[in-house]
Design a binder for these strands. Structure first.
Length: 493
RNA sequence: GCCCCCAUCGUCUAGCGGCCCAGGACGUGGCCCUCUCAAGGCCAAAACACGAGUUCGAAACUCGUUGGGGGCACCA
């Protein structure tokens, strides 16, 4: 049994949960569950200016919808509370002071204007943009005096000028960077708020995080983060940087810009959109789990529990992965088909209601087996089975005419079929199909011709669930009424 | 511009020196099943980026090239 892992998902509430974040959360969750450890949720909201209203609520709701319940975090608390960084300001400030005292950080009094100018000059000279170390050269006494005088300042990390720094990423091995290529990053802003580099490292240590599983966007700052841990004298967590998601074309990072375009084709990168489009948590989880990973040589359909059992960091790939939405459809269809009919009915109901159809759950439960293997999303159920819940259907006249037939012959066929149906008190009687097939033969029609007409008449659609199962559910009275209506439409043509 | 990372079918991947003239899945094409549409079954096309090494042997190891991605904020 491996050591219990304490991991965390630490989003910033600057937007809604997207599939990239969801996958990061998933992997953290899986490792925690598999090892009997804890999955923490920490909100990185130190930049108050960037907060987006509703983002936090969306994050929590989306995570829960996916089934990724955290063990410690917002709304739950825990031994390391608070889990909102905005409530931990003093902790970071104290740690920044400690770093200064240890000689690993220093106050910097440079104004934003000076820094902007510095950067502009460096770019003109094609030099890498880097702090020039002006305040680093201040004597401790001088710096302390200016600090006590209340002069506005930030706190910077004192990056060594010589040597190199190495850190190990679980998926990539040792990564080494020359220290001269690193900057004296700001840890604490003028307003006293910590930046990610400080806040996240301090919290990860205080919360006893064992594995930092995060987006590979953080890879370039891994040396800095490792050095911050070392400067405090702390043990480092295991670092694991996940590949980024690319656009379906494979060109460029998946962005929110793409979102609007995708929505038009019934896809989205946002978890709440996926939910509204009729995707299931099972489908989404399966889909994102396998983007950039493989957990079994022969199997690719997994429940959350199966993923918990098979998950392993060694099965993750470091290369960027292009998002493939047709695969989302596939996995969603598979998981839809795995649902018990009653469960499928329960999940479809809100979509019928949204479409203005009062769908009772027990009736939906009888319909479910008929539509289950034809659905990609829950939304599809409405299009496929809406006719069950409408008083009447209005088929297009052209759909009522049998293939290669005249309206007259079609009307006659409907009439003859009605007579047969009228003799059956129970439309679920298997003999019904036998009789109607015999009718088709008598009329010189192929079964498909006759059934096509009846399908249009009864469902109002050219594509529908199986005809006989559908008629049995609709009931004899309604079926006969719809056939009568169809016949008169045909007679009038 | 500088730094870092990555590189097997269109896409996600298996492969951790001989089991590979490379396996699976999605998608695509064909056939079967069939009352429509699906689902399901069978079959097919489809890849080791390139060049040098190392080795008896390289998809696997090393270096280079090319290509792709990420980062270089008082954002995260």
């Amino acid at each position: 049994m491996p050591q219990p892992a304490r991991v965390r998902f630490a989003p910033s509430p600057t937007g809604f949960l997207h599939i990239g974040g969801a996958r990061t959360a998933l992997y953290n969750f899986l490792l925690a569950r598999q090892t009997g450890g804890q999955f923490l949720l920490r909100i990185e909201d130190t930049d108050q200016k960037r907060l987006v209203p509703g983002a936090l609520e969306n994050l929590l709701a989306s995570l829960r919808w996916l089934g990724l319940q955290w063990d410690e975090g917002p709304e739950l608390g825990g031994p390391n509370a608070p889990y909102l960084q905005s409530q931990r300001k003093e902790i970071y400030r104290a740690h920044a002071d400690e770093l200064i005292a240890r000689g690993s950080a220093y106050p910097c009094f440079c104004t934003p204007a000076r820094l902007t100018e510095l950067r502009t000059r460096q770019q003109q000279r094609k030099e890498p943009p880097r702090y020039d170390g002006l305040c680093r050269r201040l004597t401790p006494a001088e710096a302390e005096a200016r600090r006590l005088a209340g002069e506005p300042h930030v706190v910077r990390f004192k990056m060594p000028h010589e040597g190199a720094t190495s850190a190990v990423d679980v998926l990539r091995g040792e990564i080494t960077v020359q220290n001269k290529d690193l900057d004296d990053s700001i840890l604490l802003k003028t307003d006293g708020w910590a930046l990610y580099h400080l806040a996240a490292m301090v919290d990860d240590h205080l919360m006893e995080i064992t594995h930092v599983i995060r987006s590979s966007e953080w890879l370039p700052s891994l040396p800095l983060h490792a050095m911050i841990h070392r400067a405090f004298g702390w043990d480092e967590p295991l670092w694991c940087h996940l590949s980024v998601f690319l656009k379906p074309s494979g060109k460029g990072k998946m962005s929110k810009r793409e979102g609007a375009e995708l929505m038009k084709e019934g896809h989205s990168v946002f978890v709440h959109d996926l939910r509204e489009l009729g995707y299931t948590p099972e489908g989404v989880v399966n889909w994102i789990a396998l983007m950039g990973a493989s957990f079994d040589e022969r199997q690719d359909v997994f429940s959350l529990q199966e993923l918990v059992e098979r998950f392993s960091l060694d099965h993750l790939t470091p290369a960027p992965a292009a998002v493939n939405f047709s695969k989302a459809d596939h996995f969603n269809g598979v998981h839809l088909r795995r649902l018990a009919p009653e469960e499928l009915a329960r999940r479809m109901r809100p979509f019928f209601e949204k479409a203005g159809l009062a769908a009772e759950e027990d009736l939906l439960g009888r319909i479910a087996p008929l539509v289950q293997e034809r659905m990609v999303t829950l939304e599809d159920g409405v299009e496929m089975a809406g006719f069950f819940f409408r008083e009447q259907v209005i088929p297009a006249g052209s759909d009522l005419v049998g293939k290669g037939m005249t309206p007259q012959a079609s009307a006659d066929a409907v009439h003859a079929a009605s007579e047969i149906l009228a003799r059956h008190p129970d439309l679920a009687d298997p003999a019904l199909e036998v009789e109607l097939r015999a009718l088709a033969e008598r009329l010189g029609l192929k079964p498909g011709q006759l059934f096509g007409i009846l399908r249009a008449a009864v469902t109002g659609q050219t594509v529908s669930p199986p005809l006989f199962g559908s008629m049995a559910i609709i009931g004899r009275a309604k079926v006969l009424a719809r056939l009568a209506a169809a016949e008169s439409t045909l007679r009038a043509m």
